[in-house]
Amino acid sequence: MKAPAISLLAGLLFGAGLAVSGMADPARVRAFLDLFGTWDPTLAFVMAGAMLPMAIAWLIQKRMPRPIAFEAFDLPSTSLLDAKLLGGASLFGIGWGIAGLCPGPALADLAIAPFEAGIFVITMLAGMAAHRITAK
């Protein structure tokens, strides 16, 4: 029961952070990406502010023999830059630029703007299903 409770708490904290920071607001995200129009730099501060806690988390993780609620850490085994990774990153960036949403904020937005976010989430799930089918 410990792991699901920790996961739920982490998800709630993440969602609250997205909402408070403005990362769940598609208009703010698009304004951040609009470098030659009405650029809004506030999300750059959000992203920069996330770097310090993440750096601390990586330092703590390196000293831990195992996670608190699981048997082992689930870390990437490789840092290979291949066509799959670059293609996926490109699709993510294009979708983020067009919709102003990425998966985390889209799920958080289901509570705020269920219809708009729902379209994105359904499309995202369809893309995930298509990948699962074609990757085999």
Score class of each variant (00 low, 15 high):
residue 3 A to D: 12
residue 4 P to N: 12
residue 6 I to A: 05
residue 6 I to P: 01
residue 7 S to Y: 04
residue 8 L to P: 04
residue 9 L to I: 13
residue 11 G to F: 09
residue 11 G to N: 11
residue 12 L to Q: 07
residue 13 L to P: 07
residue 14 F to A: 15
residue 15 G to T: 13
residue 18 L to T: 07
residue 18 L to R: 06
residue 18 L to V: 06
residue 19 A to I: 05
residue 20 V to D: 14
residue 21 S to R: 01
residue 22 G to E: 02
residue 22 G to V: 01
residue 23 M to C: 00
residue 23 M to K: 00
residue 23 M to V: 00
residue 23 M to I: 00
residue 24 A to D: 04
residue 25 D to I: 03
residue 25 D to P: 03
residue 26 P to H: 09
residue 27 A to C: 08
residue 27 A to N: 07
residue 28 R to G: 01
residue 28 R to V: 06
residue 29 V to D: 02
residue 30 R to Y: 08
residue 32 F to T: 10
residue 32 F to N: 12
residue 32 F to P: 05
residue 37 G to H: 08
residue 37 G to T: 14
residue 37 G to S: 10
residue 37 G to N: 08
residue 38 T to S: 15
residue 39 W to I: 13
residue 39 W to L: 14
residue 39 W to A: 15
residue 40 D to M: 11
residue 40 D to R: 12
residue 41 P to W: 02
residue 41 P to C: 05
residue 42 T to N: 09
residue 42 T to G: 12
residue 43 L to V: 09
residue 44 A to C: 01
residue 46 V to M: 02
residue 46 V to I: 07
residue 50 A to T: 12
residue 51 M to P: 04
residue 51 M to K: 08
residue 51 M to E: 10
residue 52 L to N: 08
residue 52 L to I: 15
residue 52 L to A: 15
residue 53 P to T: 00
residue 54 M to A: 15
residue 55 A to L: 14
residue 55 A to F: 07
residue 55 A to M: 13
residue 55 A to P: 03
residue 59 L to A: 07
residue 59 L to H: 06
residue 62 K to C: 04
residue 63 R to T: 04
residue 64 M to N: 05
residue 64 M to T: 04
residue 65 P to K: 01
residue 66 R to Y: 07
residue 66 R to S: 14
residue 67 P to E: 05
residue 68 I to P: 03
residue 69 A to I: 07
residue 72 A to D: 08
residue 73 F to L: 10
residue 76 P to F: 08
residue 77 S to Y: 05
residue 77 S to D: 11
residue 78 T to W: 07
residue 78 T to H: 11
residue 79 S to E: 09
residue 79 S to K: 10
residue 79 S to V: 05
residue 79 S to L: 12
residue 80 L to S: 13
residue 80 L to G: 12
residue 81 L to P: 03
residue 82 D to V: 09
residue 82 D to M: 08
residue 83 A to Y: 03
residue 83 A to K: 05
residue 84 K to R: 13
residue 84 K to G: 13
residue 88 G to E: 09
residue 90 S to V: 04
residue 90 S to R: 04
residue 91 L to N: 11
residue 91 L to C: 15
residue 94 I to S: 11
residue 95 G to K: 09
residue 97 G to I: 00
residue 98 I to P: 04
residue 100 G to P: 01
residue 101 L to E: 11
residue 101 L to Q: 11
residue 102 C to M: 07
residue 102 C to I: 02
residue 103 P to H: 02
residue 103 P to F: 03
residue 104 G to Y: 03
residue 104 G to H: 05
residue 105 P to L: 14
residue 105 P to C: 11
residue 107 L to F: 14
residue 108 A to G: 04
residue 109 D to H: 06
residue 109 D to G: 12
residue 109 D to A: 13
residue 111 A to R: 03
residue 111 A to M: 09
residue 112 I to D: 10
residue 113 A to L: 02
residue 114 P to R: 15
residue 116 E to D: 06
residue 116 E to Y: 02
residue 116 E to A: 13
residue 117 A to L: 03
residue 119 I to G: 05
residue 120 F to P: 01
residue 120 F to T: 03
residue 120 F to E: 02
residue 120 F to M: 05
residue 121 V to C: 10
residue 121 V to T: 12
residue 121 V to E: 10
residue 122 I to D: 00
residue 122 I to Q: 02
residue 123 T to N: 01
residue 125 L to R: 10
residue 125 L to H: 09
residue 125 L to M: 15
residue 127 G to N: 06
residue 128 M to P: 05
residue 128 M to I: 13
residue 130 A to G: 04
residue 131 H to F: 07
residue 133 I to G: 00
residue 134 T to A: 03
residue 135 A to Q: 08
residue 135 A to L: 06
residue 136 K to E: 12
